[in-house]
Design a binder for these strands. Structure first.
Lengths: 212, 212
DNA sequence: TGCAAATGTGAGGATTGCTCATGTTTTGAA
DNA sequence: TTCAAAACATGAGCAATCCTCACATTTGCA
C-alpha cells in the first residue's frame, strides 16, 4: 500500500515503481520495452497482453511489474521517448527562422516529417491514437504540444513584434494541436485524400501564422 | 456462432444482436440506454460495468446481451443518437446561408453550440474522447463529419462558384475536423484559455473558408 | 387454445491485469 | 574477505470483469 515513488498532484501519473539501478536490470527493462514495442506494432496496444510482453522479453511477469506499475505505464514510457526525440528535432528546425519565407519552409518540412512518421511507424500511430482515452497520455501530449508551441511562439514574436503576445501564444498552440489532429485524420483516410488534407492544413496554418 | 444481423465489410461494426420487436423489450432497451448514459456521466464509459448497467436498468445481464453484442455497442448506440440529433441542427443552420456574412454568423453560432454541448454534457464528452481508440466510434465520427462537411461544402460552392470543387470539399472536411479537435482541446484546458482557443479557431476557420 | 418465436434469467466459463510470498543476486561497508 | 541489507527475479494464484448458454417465461397469432 505504501508508495515509494512520489505521486504528483492527485492524478496518478504512470511512473516506474522502482528505477532499475543495476546494469542487469537496465538491460532487462530495455528488453521489456522492445518486446512491448514489437507487440504494439503487430496488434496494437489494446491487444497487447502483459504475459506476452514478459514472455517475449524473456522475463517473468513479476519482473515486468517490478519496473512498471501497470500496463499503461509501458505505453507511456515508449511515448515519452518519442516526444523527447521529436522535441529536439523541432527545436532545431525552428531555431534559426528569420523571416516569413523561412517559417514557411521550416513549417512545411516539419509537417511532412511528422506525417511521414505517422505513416511509417505503427507504434507511434497506435500510441497517439489512444491519446484521448488515457489520462496520462493526454497529459503528456498536452505538455509536449505546449513545449513545441513555445518554439513556434518564439518565432512569431520575432516576426511580428507588434502583435499581442498572448494572442500569439494562443495561435501557436492552436496551430500546433490542429496539426496533430490533421495528421491523425490524414492517416485514417486513403493516401491521396490524406495528402490533400495535409497540404490544405499547411496553407491554412501558414495563413494564420503570417496573418496581419 | 451464426450471425443473424448483416455484417458490413470485414470490420465488425457494433449493432444490435436482435432488434427489439415487442413493446416491452423496446422499453427495456430504453432503460438500458438510460442506465448506461447515467453511469457514463458519473464515472466514464471505461469504468462503466455491464453488471451495473443491468442492475440499474432493472434487467438481467443476459437481457443486456440480448440486444447489445458487447459493451462498446451500448456506447455506440448512444453516440449514434447524438450524431443524428446534431445533423439536423447543423443542416438547418447552414441551409439558408446566402453570403459571406451569413456564413460567418452561422458558423460562429454552430461552433458555440458545439462547444457549449461539450462543456455541459459529460456523456458526450466521454464518448467522443474515446473516439480515437475505438474503431467503430472512429468510423461513426468520420461518417458524421463527412456528412456535416457536405453541408458546408454546399455553402462554399454557392459562395465561390469559380473555385475547384474538390478543393472546397477538402477545405470543408478539414475545417470541420479541426473544429471538433479544437473543441476537444478547449474543454481539456481551463475555461479562459478554452474560450480563447475556440475564438482563435473561429477566426482561422473563417479566414480559410472565405479565402480567395 | 396451442405453439413457435421472442424475450428473460443468472450461474459460471474464460480471459487477463496484477499481487505477494519466497528465493536469488548484487552491493558496499566493516 | 565477509555478510547483511538492498535490489532483483519468479510464477502460482487472486480478483475483477466480459460474455455465454442452457433453460424458463411471455407474447403474438393462426
Amino acid at each position: 500500500m505504501e508508495d515509494t515513488a512520489p505521486v504528483s498532484s492527485q492524478e496518478q501519473i504512470a511512473s516506474p515503481r522502482r528505477a532499475p539501478s543495476q546494469q542487469r536490470s537496465r538491460e532487462r527493462v530495455e528488453r521489456m520495452l522492445a518486446a512491448a514495442s514489437a507487440l504494439i506494432a503487430e496488434q496494437g496496444s489494446d491487444a497487447m497482453r502483459m504475459g506476452e510482453v514478459a514472455q517475449r522479453a524473456g522475463v517473468s511477469i513479476g519482473s515486468l511489474y517490478q519496473f512498471f506499475p501497470d500496463k499503461r505505464a509501458i505505453v507511456w514510457a515508449l511515448a515519452e521517448r518519442y516526444t523527447a526525440e521529436s522535441q529536439a528535432c523541432i527545436s532545431a528546425a525552428l531555431a534559426d527562422v528569420g523571416d516569413a519565407e523561412g517559417l514557411g519552409q521550416a513549417f512545411s518540412e516539419l509537417v511532412d516529417i511528422y506525417y511521414g512518421l505517422f505513416l511509417a511507424e505503427p507504434v507511434m500511430r497506435d500510441i497517439w491514437s489512444g491519446t484521448q482515452a488515457d489520462k496520462a497520455l493526454r497529459q503528456l501530449e498536452l505538455a509536449d504540444s505546449r513545449a513545441n508551441a513555445e518554439f513556434l511562439t518564439a518565432v512569431l514574436k520575432r516576426l511580428r513584434p507588434a502583435a499581442d503576445p498572448t494572442a500569439l501564444e494562443t495561435t501557436a498552440f492552436l496551430v500546433w494541436q490542429m496539426g496533430e489532429a490533421a495528421v491523425r485524420l490524414a492517416i485514417s483516410v486513403d493516401r491521396q485524400e490524406g495528402d490533400r488534407l495535409v497540404e490544405a492544413y499547411k496553407r491554412m496554418a501558414l495563413r494564420e501564422l503570417l496573418a496581419e
